[in-house]
Design a protein around this nucleic acid. Structure first.
Lengths: 233, 233
DNA sequence: TGCTTAAGTTAATGATATTAGCTTATGATG
DNA sequence: CATCATAAGCTAATATCATTAACTTAAGCA
């Protein structure tokens, strides 16, 4: 899925909306090896804390002052690492995309092939997203006014669409689905199913995991009926 | 749909999460007729402006200071009408629920019966929600940290579920769907379809209306395949 | 060993939500 | 019609933000 925010296949909204690219991290000049490592560690630490805060207070509840407090530092110090709070959101968006892509890939590898692999992959993705709700909301919804992900942060999403088309093509080749399933349209259709299940679960069942509750258990069934929509042979 | 935020059928999340009910409007003592009308007009005006601001700046971009500015008044004056910014969100949530319910009802009345009426109703609902994105996000997503709708604001959602079950029961009676479709599960399943289409459209195609783009045109087709999931006879 | 500069600091600016307390003028009531 | 309660406005103040400017310090490369 991750159709939210795709840019290549998803026509042009984000391509129009990308923020002007100021440096997101205030320039990383030729750092000595040791210094560079320390710096990277601090950046990671800031992002971890930011994620904690977002998980506790909501995506929009992120406050650099609170992050600084937990890091044991004064608020302006954060600006040595991130140009603005939007840059923090962007870094988290990128982190979310990358991790999520990896989870989808790994999930698909556990299944068989074609439709089965796709379903397994999307379930793994769903499980991960419900375990990382703050990231999921950042990736799927538009909770933060004036935030639009940078092209870099957005890039993994195109790979995600490619992978899914590949799986659908595999399902067609295996005779699980009709040839019409090898299309962007089918990817969008699948994205509606997974996004619907996830959105309902996130909004209504914040305590439950994938496979629990009233929505996510229906997802595999819906995927199974893909063959009704794209009948093989 | 509107399963997001339902409370009766949607188990218990919101019932646990309802905010302690402080007065949302700072007490409405026995107002004279004229005064009461003026007051109500001002309240409506504030909500209209708040909706404008949310539409322009995002749901979380609402600022009482900005509302006051547009109303031509100092920020503290808003507090004569609403106890807090959360009370404004709650009033808008209620307004959204009520209008949305009416739209669904009217939409269903235009179609035939059973499955057809349900599809017509949900399409009308989708059209309205895309025309009222700020409200849609407030109703479906959880964009505002620490906001939970009051039971009053939430109530219309139960009626919405009831109406949909009724339509599904009608579809079963008409032989369009199998008996298993007369269930809460089927309502949840339908809610996944509509929520998925709407979420994708809202996140990725903010300029487009219902029926345009890559997601919402797929919805009627998905509804048509409900008979595959709940085969009649 | 010394010096560059990364990484921290404090101080200040202009937003915000909200509370307290004062003023005014509307309109219900005698 | 006059009175008076009070609705509805105001200003001032508090506490929270994000962010910028300008300074200090100390790490670590040469």
């Amino acid at each position: 899925m991750i159709l939210a925010y795709d840019v290549k296949h998803m026509t042009c909204y984000y391509s129009e909306m990308f923020n002007e690219q100021e440096e997101l991290t205030p320039a990383g000049p030729p750092l000595g090896d040791r210094r560079a490592r320390r710096r990277q560690e601090t950046i990671t630490e800031i992002l971890d804390i930011a994620l904690d805060v977002m998980t506790e207070e909501g995506v929009n509840g992120l406050s650099l002052a609170e992050v600084a407090r937990r890091l044991g530092v004064q608020p302006p110090s954060i600006y040595k690492y991130f140009a603005s709070i939007m840059a923090v959101y962007d870094a988290l968006f990128l982190r979310g995309q990358v991790e999520h892509l990896e989870v989808l890939r790994a999930g698909m590898a556990t299944g068989g092939a074609g439709l089965e692999a796709l379903t397994k992959g999307l379930e793994a993705s769903g499980r991960w997203l419900l375990e990382n709700r703050a990231l999921a909301q950042l990736l799927f919804w538009r909770p933060v006014p004036n935030f639009a992900p940078s092209p870099e942060a957005f890039a993994p999403s195109q790979e995600m669409v490619r992978i899914q088309r590949e799986a659908l093509a595999g399902a067609v080749a295996a005779g699980q689905l009709g040839p019409a399933a090898d299309s962007d349209e089918a990817v969008f259709l699948v994205s509606i199913l997974i996004t619907g299940a996830l959105t309902q679960a996130m909004a209504n069942e914040p305590e439950l995991s994938w496979g629990e509750g009233r929505f996510t258990p229906l997802f595999p069934r819906l995927m199974g009926h893909l063959a009704d929509i794209y009948p093989p042979g």
